[in-house]
Nucleic acid binder design. Structure first.
Lengths: 105, 105
DNA sequence: TGGATATATGGTAAAACGACCAAATGAATT
DNA sequence: AATTCATTTGGTCGTTTTACCATATATCCA
């Protein structure tokens, strides 16, 4: 694989990897209808604030979200909202997979 | 978050995580137009056969691909092809992200 | 200015991951 | 039945991830 192709696929994998954690995926889904501040997200996540902050940082580094500080709070939003629309397809995967496993019983 | 919602989001994150590795993403992309056997994929990957096999196993466990043994060979295919169509959106993310970083210079 | 609030950063330990090697399996060929 | 080919599995080890705690930073309010 050539250098550029390789770089592209690595960048794409990085985006998917960033979304590949339950907490981060949940956060991204919460942002699909608009920005939220950290505290709004944190309200529903049972983890240390520092953990939440680091997850958001991973999403940001991958380019999935952008952040903006306003007053005391930092607001995050999806850079490209389609990233979450895709979830319907991901759901199709797990549904098909689950059905197959159920059929085994 | 309730048990079922939690399980769903974990399964979805698992799918994204499975695709969140350059080698595995590349493999999935190779399968977008139909099945391939392990040896066909391996031909272009510079890694041990056992490594390749384990990557395929991760994709399979996540439900992204299914496998079928025919003769001496094992053929893999995407369970739900849309999983790769989504990549255009992932690309939009990295493009937007890259542009922003370039603007900083 | 001092204190409270919101968020980020550094350190650390446990767990998960990824790559390799060696060995096992399973199907086809001799 | 023995050998070969395609793939998987088990073991090991260095690297990365994740979660927590403690501490820092930045903004607002009194």
């Amino acid at each position: 694989m050539k250098g550029k192709q390789k770089a592209i696929i690595e960048a794409k994998a990085n985006v998917l990897k960033a979304l590949g954690h339950p907490t981060r995926l949940w956060m991204a889904e919460q942002l699909q209808h608009g920005e939220k501040c950290v505290c709004e997200l944190a309200e529903f996540i049972d983890a240390d604030f520092s953990t939440i902050s680091k997850h958001l940082s991973v999403l940001k580094q991958a380019g999935v979200v952008t952040d903006e500080k306003r007053g005391k709070q930092v607001y995050y939003k999806l850079r490209v909202p389609c990233i979450i629309k895709y979830m319907s397809c991901v759901e199709a995967v797990i549904k098909a997979h689950a059905e197959e496993q159920t059929d085994l019983l």
